[in-house]
Amino acid sequence: MALVEVESEVTGTVWKVETAVGDVVEEGDVLLILESMKMEIPVESPVSGTVADLLVQPEDPVREDQVLALVEA
């Protein structure tokens, strides 16, 4: 068991959160969708596991490398 940090690749805003804390996710599942410069950027889970924490909500601004979610592998 390990907590994996999911980081933003880009500066932008949170458009949609597609999962909830406690959800079981597979590697590659979309956790949330960011928007930057009119482009949708899906943020995928890097591992299979359980969503342990979601640190942002829709319309939140995010920076590149900011931690968005924690997934317990």
Partner: peptide
């Protein structure tokens, strides 16, 4: 466009 062509990601700054 302000974007990283290789990574296909927007590039604000």
């Amino acid at each position: 466009y302000a974007e990283d062509s290789a990574r296909m990601l927007p590039s604000p700054g």
